[in-house]
Amino acid sequence: MSILTCSNLTKRFGSTTALDGISFSIEPGRVVGLLGPNGSGKTTFIKLCNGLLTPTDGTVKIDSMSPGVETKKIVSYLPENSYFNDWMKVQDMLAFFSDFYSDFDAARAVEMLRSLGIAPSAQIKSLSKGTKEKVQLILVMARKAKLYLLDEPIGGVDPAVRDYILHTIIKNYNPEASVIISTHLIADVEPVLDEVIFLKNGQIVLHEDVDTLREEKNMSVDQLFREEFKCLEN
């Protein structure tokens, strides 16, 4: 059964259409790249899945449920922006997550923090932007969720940490759980993806298995993306 299904999902902000009637589903155990240029609707889609926005039309269902309290128990969400409070320590965030999510594995989070050399006693305020992102990703990945929604998880970190993040995604792989990664850094995520969804102006222009794509087009997903979204020359 699909872990996520959306049908005719539409979101308008005034006269702007951010998502224009998209329909697709994601099966369990898949790692999906949600790819598209800036302003193509990636974040809007992820926010709809989290109930942070409500659809103008159409539906999105997570494990057959509309986004709400029940889906938040099974969805682990990495937002684009940090929501940490500067006065907190890393360990306060661990306690926060332990309180909030029954599927949070604190021991695992501590282990991951250690492997990246981040002290639990560190003040959030004292962390660099990249380190904050790492902490946030660790918290999100240390949950045993059914669906991980990662909005630009690798945008602000250096290549070594990028590798660590992708490694973490592979290591955490669970055939029951799916991961949706929104990004425009395609070359970096390519090896870990099962399928890709290309968004353009709020519509799906492509939804395909990545190895099928490489086989049929003899092109990497990155090349295909550049082709598809080529900026017009003048």
């Binding site: 992708l166 490694h167 592979i170 090896p191 870990v192 993806l193 099962d194």
Partner: peptide, 9 residues
């Protein structure tokens, strides 16, 4: 993990 690829692949 060794190859850093998706387990399905």
């Amino acid at each position: 993990e060794q190859a850093a690829v998706n387990p399905n692949t």
